[in-house]
Design a protein around this nucleic acid. Structure first.
Lengths: 146, 146
DNA sequence: CTAACTGCAAATCGTTTGCGAGCAA
DNA sequence: TTGCTCGCAAACGATTTGCAGTTAG
């Protein structure tokens, strides 16, 4: 798995560094979406000396490499999560428009997958886009905010 | 139609002002997603003296009132568009991850609508959310950026 | 009349950039 | 060696806020 990533880094003319490894580890451990600041705090908890700038640079790089997905819940900051290729792990988000809380869901992803694939193909052809990913957001009010 | 909005404003204890009317007009005329700055520029073109702060405040208010939808294309700024209740006008977005260009599409919205309604109900029940809207984003590279 | 609204300028805050020093290959 | 990476501090840019004057209902 690590060799796999190394290859990916090479392909992008980038290097595998302790800092990057640590960031990847954090996403593997937490298995949820994290903001840049949350990643930064988790790194420091592991007694790792890093600057915010580096965190941002690496989250950006990992996103461009396709290892992370960038999410936006409308709370003014970007969030990131492991990009999982497997449909089984595929999921989307339910966002509370008041408190910003975001819940993952993976209901009906089977049907969704089939439907979105068809749509993706159609759109890609029509608008001359090479589509790489998609996100579905449902917005509403959570129990506590209602 | 204007009476309709007035009611909405009353319900929120807000007032219909020339500035707000002008902003609504702009979205009706342009019929596409606009950033706060774009709205600001269009207002000034109409020789309307407004501050950016007011634009932001009103875009925010109109979003909370459900008159506008807030969109995020990952280019660092928020975009807004008229919320159209009619399924006929319903659409989503195709975003280029390189240049940030966003294209509207409305393919297969009929099928989508049926599917998403079902999903919405299921999710609302399971996670105790009162879902108000949804957005689908497809990400990829446009013709020019490929 | 009075609470909501406004423009202005200053403040905020997430994110980016410039730079010299430090590593990976 | 070479050039990708790093931490730091400063810069940036979109959005927010405080405030005193203005306006809708």
């Amino acid at each position: 798995m690590k060799a796999e990533w190394k290859k990916q880094f090479n392909r992008f003319n980038k290097r595998m560094t302790p800092c990057r490894q640590a960031i990847i580890d954090i996403f593997e451990e937490k298995r949820k979406h994290l903001s840049a600041e949350e990643v930064y705090i988790l790194l420091r908890k592991k007694r790792r000396k890093v600057g915010m700038a580096t965190v941002y640079r690496n989250l950006d790089l990992l996103s461009q490499m396709g290892l992370l997905h960038r999410l936006n819940f409308g709370d003014g900051k970007e969030h990131y999560e492991m990009a999982r290729i497997s449909p089984a792990k595929h999921h989307h988000h339910l966002v509370c428009t008041r408190c910003g809380k975001a819940v993952d869901y993976s209901e009906l992803v089977g049907e969704e997958h089939e439907f979105l694939n068809r749509l993706e193909k159609k759109l890609g052809d029509k608008y001359d886009f090479s589509i790489q990913s998609h996100q579905i957001y449902f917005y509403g009010l959570c129990k506590d905010c209602r």
